[in-house]
């Protein structure tokens, strides 16, 4: 395996009195789609937020491209090329879709400054966003908001994409659109770390998988091996793919 793009070693995170991450060890190889699975409260979202510096790690090391980033603030981490799509989408509802894009393309002052080829590619992935370009983002449907959240993260090339439960609360048809969009994204060799509870969604996309429980990584391997091993799924996730479909 090549040198990991992102590497977490013995990461602990405390939020108030709670000890959430209890020694997370995780490697995200470049150009691959890594899925972080686990039950509710396992620490998946906290892991992403700790990487982004939204919550500081109390112990351990977080390295990105071989450089320690655990001591940096969130804006510095983002400026190194890590994009984050939070669970609650985090769109700016009062701003238009266009303004949301311009904010994400930090070098751009207006849409004309954005790379037109890249923009066209994003519109191919999410055609609805072109239609609602000048509409306030708050008026979009749940699925469109999620599309905007992902589109905003890829409007500029990023080295690493952290995505938190993109399928949560979406209708099955929208989830399939999202799967297609991520497949397209995968073809561009973008490195993605995606947190997901929907195993069926995760199975269609992941190259590698890490399973969390109790604030630790309890399993790492290829998605193919986990998807093919029902007993392992039962043991790690308390479910089987067959029962989840």
């Amino acid at each position: 395996m090549s040198e990991p793009l992102l590497q977490l070693q013995g990461v602990h995170t405390h939020i108030g009195a709670y000890h959430i991450l209890q020694g997370v060890d995780l490697e995200v190889p470049p150009g691959e789609f890594t899925i972080l699975l686990g039950r509710n409260g396992a620490g998946k979202t906290t892991t992403l937020r700790t990487v982004m510096g939204i919550w500081s790690a109390s112990e351990g090391s977080i390295r990105f491209e071989g450089q320690e980033i655990g001591n940096l603030g969130t804006p510095d981490i983002a400026q190194r090329g890590i994009a984050y799509v939070p669970e609650n989408m985090g769109i700016f509802a009062d701003l238009t879709v266009h303004e949301n894009f311009v904010l994400a393309a930090r070098g751009a002052k207006r849409s004309a400054d954005m790379d037109p080829k890249r923009l066209a590619w994003v519109f191919e992935l999410f055609p609805a966003l072109r239609k609602f370009w000048q509409h306030p983002a708050g008026l979009l449907s749940g699925g469109q908001k999620q599309m905007l959240a992902v589109a905003r993260a890829i409007v500029e090339p990023r080295k690493l994409l952290l995505v938190d439960e993109p399928s949560k609360g979406l209708a099955p048809s929208i989830i399939q659109n999202m799967v297609q969009a991520f497949r397209e994204l995968k073809r561009t060799d973008t490195t993605i770390l995606l947190v997901e509870q929907n195993f069926n969604f995760a199975r269609q996309l992941g190259d590698r998988v890490a399973v969390m429980d109790g604030g630790r990584i309890v399993h790492t391997g290829t998605m193919a091996s986990l998807a093919g091993d029902e007993a392992l799924q039962q043991r790690l996730l308390g479910l089987s793919l067959a029962s989840h479909q």
Binding site: M52, A78, Q79, P86, G90, D94, L95, L103, R106
Partner: peptide
């Protein structure tokens, strides 16, 4: 563009920071 960042901060400060803006 400065005003747009201010509005983004008002709506979601964490998200604006995650986009790389020093709030």
């Amino acid at each position: 563009p400065f005003g747009r960042v201010l509005q983004a901060i008002r709506e979601n400060a964490f998200r604006a920071e995650a986009l790389g803006y020093r709030i």
